[in-house]
Design a protein around this nucleic acid. Structure first.
Lengths: 246, 246
DNA sequence: TTATCCTATTTGTCTGACAAATATAAAATA
DNA sequence: TATTTTATATTTGTCAGACAAATAGGATAA
């Protein structure tokens, strides 16, 4: 049923701070507080929860981190609208995350990028096409038909931007280091794949994608995007990569 | 260029805790620490950074929250592999997030769900088909051809599961409250849309999706998924929804 | 050699203190 | 009286010290 119930097997014992954090979030929920609403001062909260101010502050520190609460001296604390991916940003440290997590993130990114095709197509206007054209025209290919990281970045960032979805845009920024890191770490895999694609002329270029958008060919665009990401799909399908240090 | 550079305009002044948090993350990066590696004890870190132990602990509390560090009494602290979406889980509080953020999350979810089609298709095996069949067979429709939340949940969760991507699965769990909340809040929008779909016989059912998977019709499956989510797309296209309180 | 106990160390928590900032009240000025 | 300035009180940010609980590692006993 709940396939993910094993995610919360926290080995380390639950500390007071954890409990207070939970209690605070519950408090916000129960009181139906909204951004802008003020919450009691530290001492009051600490007393109400029966903990020291330091414990309360450690819990508050967590909530402050993703902008769920804001405090100004003497003015008390107010609830604010949190940054959804703010927390994620901090823990995306490719050198600390294990390969499995990194692969999952790459798969996540690729899936999302395919998934936005519909949104891109729905939102597309002439200004977007013009911008994309400029990006494609100044795009630089550096070896075996691969785009430079900057060109690649500009083009796909523009696609995200066209969706008009800020969370998706932010996600792209957060997850970029992972793609860059994996491409570098496993270049022994990607290089020959790219050479093969180049040789067989099967590459889907940014220009191709743009042309399909210009032609208002929705299905063609979606399918071309899938092809464009083919190297990643084949990479992810082979789960047993060596460490890339050969 | 950097379309998101305005994300960090933090109004509130940067506190010592924020700085220490940054310094700690830098320290991990620079020292190339990996999960399992131990880090200096609190007092040493505090002294090294020239701050009190309480400030250091507030920063550590944040890192502990996503499982980036773990501490055991007397045994010191060790780095651990963080939970990528752990932070996100905490701030997805539909009643606190604004409508724009909620819409963005819904769009994110729909895009991702469309995007996983390729991964689902790639990973699909007979056991998966059997499981899906069971889920579809015991699925319950409750009004105007709409599935009950449980049936809907089971089917789509299974699709996520087939991808074999833990981050994607976890994401589904995190974001579910948003879909549920929005569907309830804006049922005045969704109800007539669903009635219309039912009347015109254009509904793509879970059975339809399963049949396409059985037939190994990849393109058909992807396109059917887009149709299956049509109500959401049309909902998101109309940005100026009233508060749903009419 | 193995099992048990002791001690020192480290984290978790509490309390009290003070500086900095500022909302509010009080006082001074036009 | 209305407005500006000043003073006070309050609240957060930070530090320091204390102690309990847990336990690693050594000392001691079997």
């Amino acid at each position: 049923m709940a396939a993910l119930s094993n995610l919360k097997i926290t080995n380390h014992q639950i500390t007071l701070v954890d409990q207070v954090e939970e209690k605070l979030l519950d408090y916000f929920r129960v009181m139906k507080l909204k951004p802008g609403d003020s919450i009691p001062k530290e001492q009051e909260l600490a007393d109400a929860l029966g903990v020291g101010r330091s414990v309360l502050r450690e819990a508050l520190s967590r909530l402050r981190m993703f902008g769920l609460v804001e405090t100004r001296t003497r003015r008390g604390m107010i609830l604010t609208e949190p940054s959804i991916l703010g927390g994620m940003k901090r823990v995306i440290l490719p050198r600390i995350l294990g390969d499995e997590a990194l692969f999952d993130l790459l798969g996540f990114r690729v899936a999302l990028e395919i998934g936005i095709c519909e949104l891109v197509y729905n939102n597309l206007n002439d200004k977007h096409l013009e911008d994309l054209e400029n990006i494609v025209n100044r795009g630089v290919v550096f070896n075996y038909g691969e785009y430079t990281p900057v060109s690649e970045y500009e083009f796909h960032t523009k696609l995200y931007e066209i969706t008009g979805n800020k969370t998706i845009m932010e996600f792209q920024e957060v997850i970029r280091p992972v793609s860059v890191f994996l491409k570098e770490k496993f270049k022994a895999y990607f290089l020959p794949v790219n050479m093969e694609i180049e040789k067989t002329g099967k590459r889907v270029t940014h220009m191709d994608l743009l042309d399909l958008l210009k032609k208002k060919d929705k299905k063609g665009f979606s399918q071309a995007m899938v092809k464009h990401f083919a190297p990643y799909y084949s990479f992810l399908r082979k789960k047993n990569h060596s460490n890339g240090n050969n």
